[in-house]
Amino acid sequence: MLLRLAYLGVTNAFAMLRLLPMSNRDKDAESLALRHQLSVLQRQLGSQKPQFHPSDRALTRTG
């Protein structure tokens, strides 16, 4: 569990570094794509609720 959390921390740090040179337009496009993926997942699951693990919640939303 601790190793997985460390792995997620490192990969998320690299993901954040990738966002630094992106323009706001690029970030908006990526956000729209992610929202679309989420809506497709919710449609496929129907009334089922997604199951999350503690490591899925490693990053919290800020701002």
Rank of each mutant, 00 (worst) to 15 (best):
R61H: 12
N12G: 12
D26K: 05
S23I: 00
G63P: 02
S55D: 04
H53R: 15
V40A: 10
L34C: 13
L2D: 05
A15Q: 05
F52K: 09
Y7A: 08
L5N: 10
T62C: 14
D28H: 13
T60N: 15
N24C: 11
A29L: 10
V40C: 15
A6D: 01
A13Y: 07
R18D: 01
P54I: 07
S23D: 00
P21Y: 12
R35H: 07
A6W: 03
F14G: 01
T62G: 13
M1N: 13
A33E: 11
Q44M: 05
K27C: 09
R43G: 03
S47P: 08
S39V: 00
R43Q: 05
H53C: 14
T62N: 10
A15R: 02
A58S: 15
A6Q: 08
L45Q: 03
R4Q: 09
Y7L: 06
G9F: 00
L59A: 14
L3M: 09
N24M: 11
Q48N: 12
G63M: 03
K49T: 06
H36I: 08
S47E: 14
A15T: 01
F52G: 06
L17S: 02
Q48H: 14
A33V: 03
L34S: 15
F14W: 06
A29P: 06
N24I: 08
L32H: 08
L34W: 09
L34R: 09
L8C: 14
Q44W: 12
A29C: 08
S39L: 03
L32F: 14
F52R: 14
